[in-house]
């Protein structure tokens, strides 16, 4: 992970972007190749790993567990609504193996920033997941969806990859079926042992992904490499769902953006995001079919040496 950039390199990148050609031959709005795998971690309820181009490697594990519903809030109506909902908890961690800068306390602020961004988009009405369906007993127990992202390698464009991998992992997640019985003391529940009964979390297809647009000179690009990221003075994270609706926007970096450019960036983010989701879903479907075929043929579904496989 480079920290400094020379004025000549900066100039080279800015001029390239202006001519719609970047150092690796891409245009302004081209992504690098993304490789995706799902269901790698048997201990987790769902998992996915994405690798972008030659670098950025994100592994997301989703664990569902039974927890208490959140009953905070001053308004009766809000409390009532909350008591019938499951919860989502996000965490992003940059592993020191990805970069020396992530070692020790240096990564804390960065981790916190990434976690808050992921949490803001996924927690809330725009998050997509049907939280009402995750409630087991209203006012008492619910499913808590823990989303843990681990950054294993870094080559720019971290947040986009975290969001894409999270969506893939949620697609892969299965929640055990609960059977609710009425007893004298009220409601009780039990899990169904049969994993065949486990269901996908309803609303996973509405989970948004994010597109980071980086402003270089007076133009903007997607999927910036580490060197390009050093040239950027302002970036805009646009979260989009499959309907092309905006689910969150956040400016980053220490520069400012003109209103008309901002509007243009949001529009570009919207169209690109929708396109990426479409591609991602096609791939997820293909992979799911392959896995089910393997199960039918009684072959091993486990993956060998997954971290090395690109």
């Amino acid at each position: 992970m480079p920290v400094l950039i020379s004025p000549a390199e900066r100039e080279y990148i800015i001029n390239g972007v202006d001519h719609n050609i970047r150092a690796d031959g891409r245009g302004r709005l081209d992504y690098r190749q993304i490789v995706i795998e799902t269901g790698l971690i048997p201990q987790a309820s769902g998992s996915a790993r994405c690798r972008l181009g030659e670098g950025t490697d994100v592994l997301v594990g989703v664990n569902v567990e039974v927890g208490q519903v959140d009953m905070e809030g001053d308004d009766e109506v809000i409390r009532e609504r909350k008591s019938k909902r499951g919860r989502v908890i996000c965490n992003v961690e940059c592993s020191p193996i990805a970069s020396q800068q992530f070692a020790g306390r240096g990564a804390e602020d960065f981790n916190n920033e990434l976690t808050q961004t992921l949490d803001r988009v996924l927690n809330g009405p725009q998050g997509g997941l049907n939280l009402e369906k995750l409630c087991i007993i209203p006012g008492a127990e619910c499913w808590v969806v823990n989303i843990d992202a681990l950054i294993l390698d870094y080559a720019g464009n971290l947040l986009d990859m975290v969001f894409i991998t999270t969506r893939a992992a949620l697609h892969n997640t299965k929640v055990p079926k609960t059977i609710i019985t009425k007893t004298e003391d009220g409601l009780e529940f039990d899990f169904s042992d049969d994993m065949e009964d486990a269901e996908r979390i309803e609303g996973w297809e509405n989970v948004p992904i994010a597109v980071t647009l980086s402003k270089i000179g007076s133009r903007h690009i997607v999927d910036a490499t580490p060197l390009e990221e050093l040239t950027v003075d302002a970036r805009l994270l646009v979260a989009v769902n499959k309907n092309g609706k905006i689910c969150g926007v956040q400016k980053g970096g220490s520069g400012s953006i003109e209103p008309s450019l901002l509007n243009e960036m949001i529009q570009t983010g919207g169209t690109i995001g929708q396109h990426v989701i479409q591609k991602l879903d096609e791939q997820l479907e293909r992979e799911e079919k392959e896995t089910s075929k393997k199960i039918v043929r009684n072959e091993s579904v486990g993956k060998l040496g997954f971290f090395a496989a690109i």
Binding site: R120, P125, K245, C247, G248, V249, K251, I257, E258
Partner: peptide
């Protein structure tokens, strides 16, 4: 006429 920050949530 420059926007220095923007933070949006919600669909």
């Amino acid at each position: 006429n420059e926007i220095t920050h923007m933070l949006q949530s919600g669909e």
